[in-house]
Nucleic acid binder design. Structure first.
Length: 247
DNA sequence: GCGACAG
DNA sequence: ATCTTGTCGC
């Protein structure tokens, strides 16, 4: 289980869309856009949510990996009754509670969290990855398969190519960069990467590419995706030394 | 009114 | 996200 000293609280949903949006704007103020993660990453973790019973139950998966070998060190699945429907822009109110429970099930906190969804590439700069980062205080980065908002130029079909994702004209801050479109794999649609918390805009692309093995999704998110969506099993590697936390 | 719309 | 058959490309 994670450190008892780490107090994490999930957002509550009371049906008030306007209140939820106001809360997002307020929390977005607490997002840190700088590299606040360890110089030498020891562990990272991937987070994703799937659903059962026609959406009645949310199933969140958290996978802790060795940042160097990329081998899975631990994983935990949490099931919670779904409290609200999916509403574009309010995803965190639907999935964050389950994600927090999944995090609490890990033997230790990761140095960096990869969350399936957007970070600040959001209407109010608080996508689920940013919300997760602010609530837990952990460095977090968002990795989404589709864009929510923004525009981006065409990018070369080369592994690692990326181009800015910017706010459209007719917005409060036209042209503001909110993330990146990243070609993680040749021949695949780009990924949308954006800072969640304690991660800079500049380091986001390389941070994600560093964990891309041979698939479109980086390992942390890919493995969490597999578990959350019941796609297959993930072999956990025993690593006593890392779980010790010394050094 | 119309188009867009993470998971 | 989930359901769910066949099909296109490396």
């Amino acid at each position: 289980m994670v450190e008892p000293s780490i107090y994490i609280e999930a957002p509550q949903w009371d049906g008030d869309v306007r209140a939820a949006r106001a809360l997002q704007s307020e929390l977005a103020t607490q997002v840190k856009l700088r590299d606040g993660f360890p110089k030498q990453l020891r562990t990272v973790a991937g987070f994703d949510v799937g659903f059962e019973d026609g959406g009645a139950t949310a199933r969140a998966a958290a996978v802790l990996l060795d940042a160097v070998s990329m081998q899975p060190l631990a994983a935990h699945v949490a099931r919670l009754p779904t409290a609200m429907p999916y509403i574009p822009g309010l995803l965190s109110f639907r999935e964050l509670p389950a994600l927090i429970e999944a995090l609490r099930g890990l033997p230790q906190l990761p140095d960096l969290a990869f969350v399936d969804g957007h970070g600040i590439a959001h209407p109010r700069r608080l996508g689920i990855a940013a919300h997760f980062g602010v609530i837990t205080g952990l460095p977090a980065i968002g990795v989404a398969k589709k864009k929510l908002v923004g525009e981006f130029a065409s990018l070369h079909d080369m592994r690692g190519a990326f181009t800015p994702l910017r706010l459209p004209s007719k917005t409060t801050t036209p042209g503001e960069q909110i993330g990146w479109a990243l070609r993680s794999k040749v021949g695949c649609l780009p990924l949308f990467v954006s800072p969640g918390n304690r991660v800079s805009m500049a380091s986001a692309p390389e941070l994600v590419m560093r964990f891309v093995a041979g698939y479109r999704l980086p390992e942390p998110t890919r493995l969490a995706d597999r578990i959350a969506s019941r796609r297959g099993a993930v072999e956990i590697v025993r690593s006593p030394d890392l779980l010790g936390g010394a050094g």
